[in-house]
């Protein structure tokens, strides 16, 4: 591959471009982490671009103890894990049925899900809010979870049906000849075979749910059922110009998703590409 003649100038330009982009992208986040180790006073009175001289960890104690960050973290975990589990299970079931057990109604039902991919949550926010209230689910975890699951399904059904189509019919036929029913075939053959698409779907759904703000913030009151993004939004208002604590709460809020990204970065980028291309 590399016997091509690329001039030195091109090489330099390309490296400069890539490094510039990378630095520009990462620097604000790096800067944020640095500032979280300054007190507000130090931040306001010294150069805003400087490294902290005395690394101050008091902000972290404050954010962890006073703010009750663990509660928000737990809510984020609950919302994300339950949504992922439900979306992966339901989307696999429906995807398999749409792809392999064709009925006349399949075209209509499958089409309905596909249309949902491009719809925006905000355009149905008011009816959702009214419905959650009418169902008595305002300020409960279910009131957040049910909409999350429904909103995750269009992409899920699309990906799963697409994947299930590639499973050979002969395989399903031979399972039937051995006496397996459709549900049995799904549980013991199709679902395990769909593991790659399930992983992709789980990762897309997880990052989406973890970062979701508007719906969760609207459907809950008080801190009990709010997740990390809502907590960040609230502190930004409440802490105002208490920069040290503000930057620290942002940093703490960043840590879980950064760890997740470090672990699954390849699957995340693959999943995004798979979901977006034909979406």
């Amino acid at each position: 591959m590399d016997n091509r003649n690329i001039s030195v100038v091109t090489k330099v330009v390309v490296y400069v471009v890539m490094i510039a982009f990378t630095v520009l992208t990462v620097y604000p986040i790096f800067w944020l982490v640095l500032q979280s180790f300054k007190t507000s006073q130090v931040y306001m009175t010294t150069n805003k671009l400087s490294f902290p001289v005395n690394w101050y960890v008091g902000n972290y104690k404050f954010v962890w103890n006073q703010v009750g960050f663990s509660n928000f973290f737990m809510n984020s975990v609950i919302y994300s894990v339950v949504t992922v589990a439900a979306v992966v299970a339901l989307a696999n079931m429906a995807g398999f049925a749409f792809a392999k057990l064709r009925f006349k109604i399949t075209k209509l039902l499958h089409g309905l899900f596909i249309v949902g991919i491009l719809l925006t949550l905000q355009s149905i926010l008011i009816p959702l809010f009214l419905m959650v209230n009418a169902a008595g689910l305002y300020n409960t975890r279910l009131g957040v979870l049910i909409p999350y699951i429904g909103l995750g399904l269009p992409m899920g059904v699309y990906l799963c049906a697409d994947f299930a189509k590639s499973i050979h019919d002969e395989l399903l036929e031979s399972a039937r000849i051995d006496g397996a029913r459709y549900l049995r075939t799904f549980v013991s053959i199709v679902f395990p075979m769909c593991a790659p698409v399930s992983v992709t779907l789980a990762i897309i759904t997880f990052t989406g749910t973890w970062n979701e703000f508007i719906l969760m913030n609207l459907m809950t009151a008080g801190d009990k059922y709010k997740a990390i993004p809502a907590a960040v939004g609230r502190f930004a208002g409440a802490l105002g110009s208490d920069y040290g604590k503000l930057f620290t709460s942002l940093t703490v809020a960043l840590i879980p998703i950064l760890i997740f990204y470090a672990l699954f970065r390849n699957q995340i980028t693959k999943g995004v590409a798979a979901g977006a291309v034909k979406g």
């Binding site: 079931m93 009925f103 355009s123 049910i146 909409p147 429904g150 459709y182």
Partner: peptide, 28 residues
């Protein structure tokens, strides 16, 4: 059996989707 399996596999997703996405769209 095929019909029943289809319903069992598809209905949970369809019901949640219609309730949470399709109906609110029309409602709005």
């Amino acid at each position: 059996e095929k019909r029943l399996s289809y319903a069992a596999l598809v209905l949970p997703a369809v019901i949640i989707y219609l309730t949470v996405v399709a109906f609110p769209t029309v409602f709005s």
